[in-house]
């Protein structure tokens, strides 16, 4: 049996998750010019909020979604206010260090409350997969691909066709010039950061339903989002989306295809993101789709 079509579909699924997770990171990098290490931890917050509301409290779907949105917004807002804004105008490494501590704080808080064990947030115990032309796919995976297409189209419309999107692009291009024509930097940044947090938390919920959640998932997704963003060019949202799909493709093809009779063990799948980061930083630091070389 040829497994290539199945691998391509799997690549599409993981690429969709990475795209949802990393587009927010890229959007905030474009505005704030900081590397938010706690980005992947927002995924964890979203997923654990659903776990808490749906499985521990039994609040039903509507209540769970409302709780998850509320919790993510609160965490995102506090993070921005406490861990990012005081350090914005200082050395670029400072926010990196503070978000590193933020990630550790969130991770240990979740581990203290829910325990370090793997939790599942899928609604039912077993999900039947559907077979389409020899390819197996579960309903939740269809939801993942659909969400990626829908939400990313919405994001594209928002950024490129609305007044708020024009403000965002203006601020990303030149903050001081944009502020001088009375575009409020602080308000726009807060709005974008909260939207990005919601998007990320939603992708965390999808990850939780597709596989499972655990407190350590945050940093690994952060590094994957960094990889996708570096691949696509820092702050370049559509480059990052393309980078996410490339990352998904590389990961799935690398472990599925035999290299002259030798195939990589599945455990190395995650290491590809890191190798991509190093390779791109070395040979093409502006990203695959960037044209301008970053000075210094």
């Amino acid at each position: 049996m040829d497994i290539l079509p199945q691998l391509l579909v799997n690549a599409l699924i993981s690429g969709s998750i990475y795209a949802l997770a990393s587009s927010g990171l890229s959007l905030t990098y474009g505005l704030l010019k900081i590397l938010n290490f706690a980005h992947g931890h927002f995924m964890m917050i979203g997923a654990y909020a659903v776990y808490f509301a749906f499985h521990m409290m039994g609040w039903g779907w509507l209540g769970s979604v409302a709780f998850s949105v509320g919790a993510s917004l609160l965490v995102g807002w506090l993070s921005l206010r406490i861990f990012i804004f005081p350090f914005r105008t200082l050395h670029p490494l400072l926010p990196f260090v503070t978000t590193l501590t933020l990630g550790t704080i969130l991770e240990s808080a979740v581990a203290m409350i829910f325990g370090v064990n793997v939790k599942s947030i899928s609604p039912s115990a077993s999900i039947d997969s559907i077979e389409i032309a020899g390819i197996f796919i579960t309903p939740i995976q269809i939801v993942i691909i659909g969400s990626a297409i829908g939400l990313l189209s919405l994001l594209a419309f928002f950024i490129h066709s609305t007044a708020a999107g024009r403000k965002i692009r203006a601020l990303a291009q030149h903050e001081h010039a944009a502020e001088s024509i009375s575009i409020s930097s602080g308000r726009t940044v807060t709005m974008v950061f909260l939207c990005a947090t919601l998007l990320t938390a939603y992708s965390g919920v999808l990850v939780g339903m597709e596989t499972n959640v655990q407190p350590t998932m945050g940093s690994s997704y952060t590094i994957k989002a960094f990889a996708a963003m570096i691949l696509g060019g820092l702050g370049n949202v559509w480059g990052t989306v393309a980078g996410s799909f490339i990352l998904g493709l590389v990961e799935n093809l690398s472990i599925g295809i035999d290299f002259f009779g030798y195939s990589l063990p599945a455990g190395y799948k995650d290491a590809f993101a890191f190798v991509i980061i190093l390779g791109v930083l070395l040979f093409r630091p502006q990203g695959m789709f960037g044209s301008k070389l970053r000075v210094a």
């Binding site: 590094i223 990889a227 980061i277």
Partner: peptide, 10 residues
């Protein structure tokens, strides 16, 4: 910082 982080992850 990111490069060394990726390296230690490898």
């Amino acid at each position: 910082a990111i490069g060394t982080l990726a390296f230690s992850a490898v």
